[in-house]
Design a protein around this nucleic acid. Sequence first.
DNA 1: AGGTGCATGTAACAGGTTACATGATTAA
DNA 2: TTAATCATGTAACCTGTTACATGCACCT
Lengths: 180, 180
Amino acid sequence: MKELTPTGRVILGMLSMGRNTGYDIKQFVDKSTRHFWAASYGQIYPELRRLEEQGLVQSRSEPSGGRARTVFELTDLGREALREWLETTGDPLWELRCETMLKLFFSDAADPRYRIEQLRTFREQQERKLEQLRELEEPARTGSHNGPYLSLQLGLALVGSMVDWCREMEHQLVENDGSV
Amino acid sequence: MKELTPTGRVILGMLSMGRNTGYDIKQFVDKSTRHFWAASYGQIYPELRRLEEQGLVQSRSEPSGGRARTVFELTDLGREALREWLETTGDPLWELRCETMLKLFFSDAADPRYRIEQLRTFREQQERKLEQLRELEEPARTGSHNGPYLSLQLGLALVGSMVDWCREMEHQLVENDGSV
DNA sequence: AGGTGCATGTAACAGGTTACATGATTAA
DNA sequence: TTAATCATGTAACCTGTTACATGCACCT
């Protein structure tokens, strides 16, 4: 069996949770996994076709009124591929790209007061993210699946710790050089 | 002035810290920023040429023995571009791609005991990362720049909180369903 | 003589985003 | 009537990795 592509895995997962059109998948990604795994139409639609070629999903046309609509569902093979991926425990992908850390790293090449500036901007950004995550908490807690809630809690811990660290560090930096 | 590319910024920063060949930059990235910002030869060498075209860096050939070697340094324009980027405070790039969160998210489609399995694998991975970061702590603390130490602390806080969260969650999961 | 490190580079590939085009349905 | 939403799709672009090729220098 061919290895699943990253987006392929998201799609199979989303199908397993009852999302069944390309549009629907994208919408749902945008209000759930987007915080740790995004996807765009440019990936989703072609990938759905590829998955069908591989026999992992099955499409059928199901227009709503005169509006074209293609509904997908997992095949047995697809369900199997998803399960296999979920049950594999081998060095999972973990990628972080954080411009703030990079700026901090190079911050000796600029006026030191910009450190606080960067930290503040970053903290505010992460606080907004935290809020967005918190809005997902209630629906995730009461939903029919447990997975989303669990992954949300990990996200919350991660973002929360960064916000806390920033607050502390901003405090220290202000004390140390008295600048705003 | 044209906007810097992501790798262009890393290069300018590294040059400002005294790294002066493509090779040297790559080596240093690999033992410092790689945890939150990677770079490969395939990006670095072409980008150095592009930066020179834009007048941000200046190269000179400086062979060591019969071994070809091109040394780069920042021009005034390059220093200015770097400073400008460092002093800009606008919605910094922050991207996380975490396969474990994705697997947890979809974990209802597999046997629940794999949740603990995924968590454990992830924690071990992050513990290794934590160790690598800790090895960088001493040199960063005693080095001539403050930036690297600061960014390292943020990384440490982030990875540390995830490890803690995993431990706690693994504990809870084991209690709740008694498996493994 | 052979392995490791220094040093430069590129071609092929992978993965993903953005912007655009199209058009029906529904709620205001 | 018009804006938002549902719905599908693609082409151009960007960014980055991997694998490979090359060759000198230095240490054992």
